[in-house]
């Protein structure tokens, strides 16, 4: 990590949310820039933040519109979007437009931090990939194309491996159905095929494919590979 604190641009019209984020993020060592509206946000982009937390329900410029504009100016900056429950369509659209991840309001601080870390890590990972990815008991060697669960090698079909590779490359981030379809197939648009492959992959690498620990379903949106630092969510779940 670099010595200077990373700048996080927080764009939200609600003062309590901004306050909460400022407190929470600065405690984690980030420097927080606050923008109450889209216009200020665009101005503050000049400061080259390392990540943007963007509320989709902004007063002056539509959240998605602002997203487009930010991507237009600064291609690479990771963006985590704050959205409301039930707006799956909005979330998918935001992700397709270039957001890296989303958090549903009301959110817990830990969830947001985890997603932010995932988005930042990805950014860093692009510049220096580590050859072996590990999370939980899953390890993936991207160079030699070897997948191991609990040190047992798992045989995957080419497509399954591709799927896993894409998930690993974006570990911790949510990937929309469309994105995954686009990565794996050229001409298919039907998400059900994706689901079938995910199921198959799960059957191979998960202990219980119906209660997956690694490949997590983001209902209505896509899939996410659990990143290493993420705490296991949920309580005790027993297996049959």
């Amino acid at each position: 990590m670099s010595a200077a604190p990373l700048k996080i641009l927080v764009v939200d019209d609600e003062p309590p949310i901004r306050k909460l984020l400022r407190m929470g993020l600065s405690k984690q060592g980030y420097e927080v820039l606050e923008a109450p509206n889209g216009k200020t946000a665009l101005d503050l982009l000049a400061e080259k933040p390392a990540l943007v937390v963007l509320d989709l329900g902004l007063p002056d410029i539509q959240g998605l519109e602002l997203l487009r504009m930010i991507r237009g100016r600064n291609e690479g900056v990771p963006i985590v979007v704050l959205s409301s429950r039930g707006d799956e369509v909005g979330k998918v659209e935001a992700l397709d437009l270039g957001a890296d991840d989303y958090v549903t309001k009301p959110f817990g601080m830990d969830e947001l931090l985890a997603r932010m870390r995932a988005a930042l890590r990805h950014q860093l990972q692009v510049h220096g990939e580590r050859p072996v990815f590990r999370t939980g008991e899953l390890s993936v060697d991207l160079v030699r194309r070897i997948v191991k669960v609990r040190d047992q090698e798992v045989k995957l079909s080419p497509k399954e491996y591709e799927l896993l590779r894409v998930l690993v490359q974006h570990a911790g981030k949510v990937l929309t159905h469309r994105f995954l379809l686009g990565e794996l197939w050229d001409d298919l648009t039907d998400a059900q095929y994706l689901r079938v492959y995910v199921r198959q992959l799960r059957q191979k690498i998960e202990a219980d494919h119906e209660q997956p620990q690694y490949i997590l379903t983001e209902t209505g949106i896509g899939y996410r590979l659990r990143a290493p630092e993420l705490r296991a969510e949920g309580g005790t779940i027993s297996f049959k």
Binding site: R195, V198, E210, Q211, T217, T219, G234, I237
Partner: peptide
Amino acid sequence: GEIVGSALRR
């Protein structure tokens, strides 16, 4: 089954 899983997780 997939949806059962994600419901349980939630």
